[in-house]
Write a protein that binds this DNA or RNA. Structure first.
Lengths: 113, 113
DNA sequence: CATTTAATTCAATTATCCTATAAATATCGA
DNA sequence: TCGATATTTATAGGATAATTGAATTAAATG
C-alpha cells in the first residue's frame, strides 16, 4: 500500500459516522447493506450518509453496487487488511507487529488502552 | 481502547507530516528523538513540527520528556498496538485479523494495495 | 547576568472539512 | 407515463484544522 492510500484510508476512518458505518458493513459481511439501511441503523440522514459512504468508497474501504433502487455497500476486507499490514510493517517495525490476534497474549492491557 | 481514543489516533495519523514523524519515531526506538531532529529530518519548520508532535501526543501516540534544552519524543508502542488491536478486532471481526505479520501469506496482494 | 539554543505558544490568515438544504438521477410499480 | 422510493449531486454556510511569523519560556554557557 502506498503512503497516499494509507493517508486516505486513515482520514476516511477518522470520523465518527464513517468509522461506525465501516464497522457496520464489516459486520454485515460480504452481502453488504443498502445505503438507507446504514443511515437508519446509525440514525443519520440519507444525504449525510451518502456523503460519508462516498468518502469511504473514495478511500477504497467500501465498494458500492446497484441492486434495483438500492445501492449496496460492502466493506473491502482487502483494503482494510492492506492498511493494517501497512501500519504493522511500515509503522511498527515489529515493535507492535506481535500484537495481533495471533500473538495477542504478549501484550499487557491497561485501562488507558 | 475506547472509540473516542481510536478516532483520535486515526485522525492524528491521517496527516502526511504526522504519519512521517510517527514512523520516524518508531524507527528511532525507545530512545526517541528531540523535536528539532524530527523537524530537520522531515524538512519542516520547528513551529509546525511542534504543533504536529503535540497533536500526536494528545492522541497518545507519542510521549515527550525533557532532557536539558531538548524535548525528546518517542513512539508509544502500547498505544499504536492498542489501535491495531481495535481495528483488527472491533472493525475486522476476523475477516482481516488473519492478515497480520504472523499469517500474512493468506493474502493475495494486488497493485492497488 | 546576558546570550545562545531548543522548543512552545500566541495571533492572524488561509485552507479544508462537515452539515444542511434543495435539486437531480435512477428504478420500480400502478 | 406518473408518482413514489432510494440515493446522489450541487451549493452554500459555518466550523475546524493547518501554516506562518512573532513573542515567550526554559535551560545551558560564558
Amino acid at each position: 500500500m502506498k503512503i497516499s492510500n494509507a493517508l486516505g484510508a486513515l482520514g476516511a476512518l477518522a470520523h465518527e459516522t464513517r468509522l461506525a458505518a465501516f464497522r457496520l458493513l464489516v459486520r454485515a459481511g460480504a452481502d453488504g447493506l443498502p445505503a438507507g439501511a446504514v443511515a437508519s441503523r446509525l440514525g443519520v440522514g440519507a444525504t449525510v450518509m451518502s456523503f460519508h459512504l462516498s468518502e469511504l468508497a473514495q478511500a477504497g474501504l467500501v465498494e458500492a453496487r446497484r441492486d434495483g433502487r438500492s445501492i449496496i455497500y460492502r466493506a473491502s476486507y482487502k483494503r482494510i487488511g492492506a492498511l493494517l499490514d501497512y501500519l504493522i510493517e511500515d509503522c511498527c517495525q515489529g515493535a507492535c507487529g506481535a500484537r495481533t490476534t495471533a500473538t495477542k497474549e504478549n501484550c499487557d492491557e491497561t485501562a488507558a488502552c
